[in-house]
């Protein structure tokens, strides 16, 4: 537990090539002090964890496996410990991705990430409207900033999802208790994204028993 008056802490998984400055700055604006880790024990036990990710899925899984982080990550998401997965972080929760076909991902949710198809620009770079489906507590309607070429086409069972459309509907984000996975970048989604970060921090704090 931190001393009264200090900022609540968030631990960010150092996924390697990911440019983390925007995530750290976004969390700071939302009122949380972030620090980076690649320690499996800390990934397992951190009261609030962020799994960021840019770059290719194969490279990210290789690093997570090499550091021994894949098991603790999958376990904490299955157990519903407060976790925020961003962009590639969402796809890492699936079984695999067209991007790196031979590489098993964390496999916390069924399904594979597939490449955008149809007459749309790839990568999707820009702001798209996010529409929450039934059961969403954290996700609200609004515009979010996306930077992705792959996506989940349908929400996995047991998760509440928000959809967006880029040549067809895809999973913009999904939540289950204090676990939130966003295909978009909340830290780059202006005031709307900032308020989502704040809601996740509040729910995560509740779930963590206020242990700060």
């Amino acid at each position: 537990m931190s001393a009264p008056g200090t900022l609540p802490g968030v631990v960010i998984v150092r996924t390697g090539t990911a440019n983390l400055a925007s995530v750290v700055a976004g969390l700071a604006r939302a009122g949380a002090a972030a620090r980076l880790t690649e320690d499996p024990a800390e990934v397992a036990s951190a009261p609030r964890l962020v799994l960021p990710g840019v770059g290719a899925l194969g490279a990210a899984m290789e690093r997570l496996d090499a550091l021994g982080l894949s098991g603790p990550l999958a376990d904490r998401v299955r157990a519903g410990r407060p976790t925020l997965a961003v962009c590639l972080g969402l796809q890492l929760l699936a079984e695999r991705s067209d991007e790196s076909p031979g590489v098993p991902a964390l496999g916390v949710v069924p399904g594979n990430a597939t490449r955008f198809s149809g007459p749309v620009r790839v990568p999707q770079l820009g702001w798209n409207r996010v529409v929450p489906g039934p059961g969403c507590r954290l996700l609200e309607e609004g515009f979010a900033y996306f930077a992705n070429s792959y996506r989940l086409e349908a929400p996995p069972p047991g998760w509440s999802a928000a959809l967006a459309d880029h040549g067809g509907p895809f999973v913009a984000a999904m939540e289950r208790g204090p676990v939130l996975a966003c295909q978009f970048h909340p830290e780059l989604s202006g005031a709307w994204g900032l308020s989502l970060l704040r809601r996740w921090l509040a729910v995560a704090d509740e779930a963590a028993g206020g242990a700060w």
């Binding site: 400055a21 925007s22 700055a25 976004g26 700071a28 604006r29 900033y145 930077a147 970048h185 830290e187 780059l188 989604s189 202006g190 005031a191 994204g193 900032l194």
Partner: peptide
Amino acid sequence: VAAVRAGLGIP
């Protein structure tokens, strides 16, 4: 870039 980023919430 670092100074801009600290307060910027868009790409």
